[in-house]
Amino acid sequence: MSMIRRLLALDGVNVICHFRDDGYLIEGYGLMSHNDMGRLAQFARDYRRIAQGNADQLAMFSGMRGWTPPHGWIIRGATQSLCGVANLVCVVDSTGAPLNEILMELREVSHW
């Protein structure tokens, strides 16, 4: 069984995708079509790079350590949220999902 699939067992996690550095979807599970997972993977890769580029500049100008390299990002919507860590992205419910646990799990799985 795929290692990332276990994230779906967490409350509120609806989709989990693993993508390559170029944004190509390697595997994805959950309540979403394969096409949309491909789009989600591309978005997550792009968003990660934008956030990382901006964080690098913040660190450069502020001289403050501890921002880079960023571990991940969260976009919190009204009912759905996206969490990205390394080359993983998941869609979770905005209410009720154990976000801390999900992030910890994402970090652990991203190291495999």
Partner: peptide
């Protein structure tokens, strides 16, 4: 917004 952040940082540095 990002260009403003860059301008602030650049002028400071």
């Amino acid at each position: 917004s990002i260009a403003t952040m860059q301008a602030r940082g650049w002028e400071k540095v």
